[in-house]
Design a protein around this nucleic acid. Structure first.
Ligand SMILES: [Zn+2]
Ligand SMILES: [Zn+2]
Length: 954
DNA sequence: CGTCAAGGCCAG
DNA sequence: CTGGCCTTGACG
């Protein structure tokens, strides 16, 4: 048994002339020579930096997909190996976007030397250049004739500067392109660029390059996959392919799988620095597993439900990379990064350097996996910038209506992107689809807004919309958007001050999406769990990465509230527009007025299919002045107030002149609004105040506003329909977190009913489609009942596999700890000066009450972080409680027929059945039809978002 | 239908 | 527990 030749990849004929590999595998004790693969004693985390290779062997530089090593590599020209693009890109279509295939120069010495490439942590990823010509002789000269496309060329270089691999991608984001330069080194570990200078390297701090980082990361990843390892980077055995993101041998694959699946916790009996090789790999599982993690094996690759076959989509999976690149080449927007196996990049960051204590048999807690997964979606689903508009826009008067209409189109595109983005979030597809819709309807504006803020984070005093459009306060004033813009700028300044990083940014986006308290959610607990996990991940991240900002976590949550407030304004502004384009903008319309159909009737299929073009997420901010009275922006707090009628009809400025006899309620609402606005006016509107002042004001006024709204609502509530009550009671857990924002929260009873008809009506088919939907691998952080002890057999019906795309992955390293229990944290009962004080106060209370820290603290955190953990947990609970509190105060229907999303759309009292079917139609189809091929509307330049919404995808 | 990368099986 | 080999299932 042991004497048979080692298993090999199907076409791995090359092994036949590799002495050490083709040697029959005898008992491992006899394989002493295998230790030659490593150069003597290694410290902790240093992998075999050098391996003795037979000089006969030439390193193969080939498709990573095939897993094939070409035996005739040595016949290739040594000095300049020109890889075919198809090979370079693993057969993807990527090369289509390359004007010329890059030329690879290789040092002849290299191929015969003992250097191993990307598994060598000393290799670095370097920006070779930006431009359109492969040699970068004339960077960016005429490159982007087509929409300003630029190419980024990234190389993997050995420490001596040899070019090992090279990869190219097109990049449309011309703004940030100027922020990176040739010669800069990309550190995958921290996702940062370092520019070399006289005294070593300095980290580039410019946040503007964040989007670029995504691109570069992806490139680095793909480069990392180009290398064909022959020897398992963990034990030196024969590589049998990619396993959990890394090329490893079969045994390490199995070992990793067992370890994760069974949640083993090994402990090294020595110093956790055991060398792992073919001979001793069984000796110390702790160090072996650590090494697995160090070389980049992904626990997300292990499926919690143990389903077999198919493709995984975790960051680092080949399908993941493939998808991103394929799309990126087709749509000319920039991709996100995945993750380079084996590090691919320098800086292995030894464990001992990170923490002196005995290492845990788990991945180094660099960045929580959940955050990484979420971040992996950035770039890919970021807004595209296909149409550079150099000029700052600005001045959008009513005369620019066309322009504005196109902006609406842009917005719609952005919305599609958001839907797509959400679909790719870990486990989002495991959420009930009705819930998906609810969540998206509730949060889209926040997501858009956060994107704008993120982009503007480094632009001092400027809000960067899409397409290079910018707004400063001056322009904003001209357009009467000063409140929105100033608030945005304020949040920007907060983010800047806090040094919010990309992971925190994406976490905030998802946090704004995954709100468990929205009324009508089917599976609230799941959302809750998600939120908890995300909060936990964010907390871990901020605590460990930003010890200098001990209160960062809490502050972030507070800023999130500010963003929520912001979006209330912007929603209103959009709905105030008189553009008939909104009507055609079916998805936008749907989101804006979930329950209210256009007065004209249902959306026609024409409307549904005639989709506009061009993305932008800045839409809300660039609403035309004329259509948006100054006061409306102030009164955002009175978001319950009916503001408009359905889209084609002009909206009242602050007063509802609506259809269907719902007008009577306007008065109350108006009063609410006035009082709210008055409150607001008393305090606010000075974005340049100190943070403390600002927080004081906003928190205080918001509380007041909420209360006043509650009063107003109470009056309404008393006279509301009993059916509302019954529905409310029937779903006692359903409280809307931000009723003032959520169109879904309007007329709850009706919402529920229409959902049960419209959504449910489509549910069967939709679910089927969803089930057939391929390839989405949910991943960690979502608690699913583990499936241990079941000996793992799938029942026949599970293998029937409608759940194929609901495959949960293991939540191994980051458990589903929950720290949320409080349902009401009235921390905002009285004004506080700033979040710090708030937190301190919390802490004080906590100390007074003599609570013991309820939750375990991540053991990987240094002690001084841990001190703050409890504080942060309280902040999180406070935030959650605050969401609930707000929800509770306003959840009952304020006005029948008016939603509370700040839109106040009247609804038709007796909706046509067809109309009842319509509201969710698009988003439903979006949710189910955005298949793995991402056939999201791409051809925006053609003025169509998309043609087919074939929910079946067939 | 072949490839790839999951999970399962089971002798050692 | 290990690890070689098998089965699965999405994708191209
Ligand atoms: Zn191995
Ligand atoms: Zn050990």
């Amino acid at each position: 048994m042991n004497n048979v030749p080692p298993p090999r990849p199907p076409s791995d004929k090359e092994h036949t002339h590799h002495p050490s590999l083709t040697a029959e595998r005898v008992d491992e004790e006899r394989r002493l020579e295998a230790s030659q693969h490593y150069n003597g004693q290694m410290t902790d985390r240093s992998y075999p930096p050098e391996r003795i290779r037979s000089p006969l062997k030439k390193r193969a530089v080939l498709s990573h997909q095939s897993g094939i090593l070409c035996a005739d590599v040595e016949n290739r020209a040594e000095n300049s190996v020109k890889l075919e693009p198809a090979i370079l890109n693993g057969g993807e279509k990527f090369e289509e976007s390359c004007l010329q295939p890059p030329v690879y120069s290789r040092d002849p010495l290299l191929s015969s030397s003992s250097q191993s490439v990307s598994s060598n942590p000393d290799n670095v990823v370097v920006i070779k250049g930006i431009g359109d010509s492969p040699d970068m002789a004339s960077p960016n000269s005429g490159a982007g004739k087509k929409f300003g496309l630029k190419k980024i060329v990234v190389q993997m270089q050995s420490p001596s500067g040899e070019v090992l691999f090279e990869d190219v991608v097109n990049q449309a984001n011309t703004n940030s392109l100027t922020d990176i330069n040739a010669g800069e080194v990309f550190d995958y570990h921290d996702s940062k660029l370092f520019s070399p200078d006289s005294n070593g390297t300095t980290e580039k701090q410019d946040p503007a390059i964040n989007t670029m980082i995504n691109t570069i990361r992806l490139l680095a990843t793909r480069i990392g996959r180009m290398e064909q390892l022959k020897e398992c980077p963990i034990c030196g055995d024969v590589v049998t392919g990619f396993h959990y993101g890394v090329q490893t041998c079969e045994s390490c694959k199995g070992f990793f799988k067992r370890t994760v699946q069974n949640k083993k916790e090994f402990k090294c009996v020595r110093n956790s620095d055991c060398e792992i090789n073919l001979n001793n790999r069984k000796k110390c599982p702790a160090c072996r597993f650590q090494k697995c993690c160090d070389v980049g094996m992904r626990v997300e690759g292990i499926r919690e439900d143990r389903s077999r076959g198919g493709r995984s989509n975790y960051e680092g999976a080949s399908a993941f990379i493939h998808r991103r690149f394929k799309r990126s080449s087709e749509s000319s927007d920039y991709p996100p990064y995945p993750y380079p196996p084996g590090g691919g990049v320098k800086k292995p960051k030894t464990y001992s350097a990170l923490s002196p204590e005995p290492p845990l048999p788990r991945p180094k807690p660099q960045i929580p996996d959940l955050l990484k997964e979420i971040y992996a979606l950035e770039g890919y689903y970021e807004e595209t910038t296909t149409e550079p508009q150099p000029c700052c826009v600005d001045r959008m008067t009513s005369g620019d209506k066309d322009k504005f209409d196109s902006l609406l189109h842009l917005t719609e595109h952005r919305l599609y992107q958001i839907v797509k983005w959400a679909r790719h979030l870990p486990n989002f597809l495991n959420v009930d689809r009705k819930d998906q819709i609810l969540l998206l309807q509730n949060a889209w504006a926040e997501i858009v807004c956060l994107g704008v803020i993120w982009r503007s984070i480094d632009a001092n005093g400027i809000i960067r919309l899409s397409f290079g459009k910018c707004l400063d306060m001056e322009k904003a004033k001209e357009m009467n958007h000063e409140e929105v813009i100033s608030r945005m700028l304020y949040v920007c300044s907060c983010f800047r001050r806090l040094k919010v990083d990309q992971y925190e940014y994406v976490a905030l986006k998802v946090l704004s999406l995954m709100l468990p308290d929205i009324r009508g959610l089917q599976d609230r607990d799941k959302i809750q769990q998600y939120q908890n996990n995300l909060l936990e991940a964010l907390l871990t991240h901020t605590s460990s990465h930003y010890p200098e900002f001990p209160l960062k976590f809490g502050e972030l949550l507070i800023r999130l509230n500010e963003v929520q407030r912001l979006t209330t304004i912007t929603r209103q502004q959009i709905i105030h527009l008189k553009s008939p384009e909104i009507a055609k903008n079916s998805l936008l319309m749907e989101l804006l007025q979930h329950n209210a159909m256009p007065a004209g009737g249902t959306l026609t299929s024409d409307q549904a299919l005639a989709h506009p073009r061009n993305p932008s997420d800045g839409i809300a901010v660039v609403a035309p002045t004329t259509a948006c009275p100054p006061d409306s922006s102030r009164s955002h707090a009175a978001c319950n107030g009916p503001q408009t009628s359905s889209s084609p009809a002009p909206s009242g400025l602050s007063r509802q002149h609506s259809v269907n006899g719902e007008v009577t309620n306007c008065k109350d609402v108006e009063e609410t609004k006035l009082s709210s606005a008055e409150l607001q006016r008393q305090h606010s509107d000075c974005p340049d105040k100190s943070d403390a002042d600002y927080d004081d004001i906003s928190e205080h006024s918001r509380t007041s506003i909420s209360l006043s709204r509650q009063d107003s609502r109470a009056q309404r509530y008393a006279s509301s329909h009993s059916r509302h009550l019954s529905v409310d009671e029937s779903s006692s857990h359903d409280i809307s977190p931000r009723p003032r924002y959520s169109s879904m929260n309007s007329a709850p009873a009706r919402t529920a009913h229409s959902h049960s008809r419209s959504v449910d009506g489509h549910m069967a088919a939709a679910t089927d489609t969803l089930s057939a939907y391929p390839g989405r691998r949910p991943s960690s952080e979502f608690s699913f009942p583990p499936k241990h002890s079941d000996s793992g057999r799938l029942s026949a019906d599970t293998s029937r596999r409608s759940a194929a795309n609901r495959r949960p992955s293991s939540s191994y390293p980051s458990g589903g700890k929950q720290f949320r229990t409080a349902t009401s944290c009235s921390a905002f009962n009285y004004p506080v000066k700033n979040p710090e004080e708030l937190l301190l106060r919390q802490q004080q209370q906590h100390l007074e009450q003599h609570h013991s820290p309820p939750l375990s603290s991540p053991s990987h955190l240094p002690p001084h972080y841990v001190d703050n953990l409890e504080l942060h947990r309280q902040a999180a609970m406070q935030w959650q409680g605050q969401q609930q509190e707000l929800a509770a105060m306003t959840s009952p229907p304020l006005l029948k027929g008016y939603n509370m999303k700040g839109l106040a759309m009247p609804h038709l009292q007796q909706p046509d059945p067809l109309q009842m079917l319509s509201p969710d139609f698009l988003s439903q189809r979006l949710l189910i039809s955005q298949s793995s091929t991402d056939n999201m509307p791409q051809d925006f330049s053609m003025g169509r978002l998309s043609q087919n919404y074939d929910p079946g995808g067939t």
